[in-house]
């Protein structure tokens, strides 16, 4: 068994219905993208969870460093002027 090369890993994304984003649902092993799509259909859409599937070889996913989460994302925290509620306008103006 240890002589067998390991099956590549694929990340699976499902779109619940047209008009929505594909969303990551899990992963699976398969020899190629055709088999990965077939397996993803069997495993992740048994109850009408979606109408479209993407599979991406896991080795092609590049992620941000969790150790740098603070320096990457904290700076957005104090930029409240990017939100509409930061600005004072008269109530009388109605919806804006």
């Amino acid at each position: 068994m240890s002589t067998e090369p390991s099956m590549p890993l694929w990340e699976v994304f499902i779109r619940p219905r047209v008009g929505l984003h594909h969303k990551h649902v899990g992963s699976l092993h398969a020899a190629d993208s055709t088999l990965a799509l077939q397996a993803a259909r069997d495993v992740y859409t048994r109850r009408e969870e979606g109408d479209s599937i993407w599979v991406v070889a896991s080795k092609n996913v590049h992620a941000s460093d969790p150790g740098k989460a603070a320096e990457n994302f904290d700076p957005a925290g104090d930029k409240i002027y990017r939100h509409p509620s930061f600005y004072d306008i008269p109530d009388d103006v109605g919806h804006m």
């Binding site: 992963s27 080795k59 590049h62």
Partner: peptide, 8 residues
Amino acid sequence: MYSQGLIG
């Protein structure tokens, strides 16, 4: 569920 390169 994540890229193999990141595991462990």
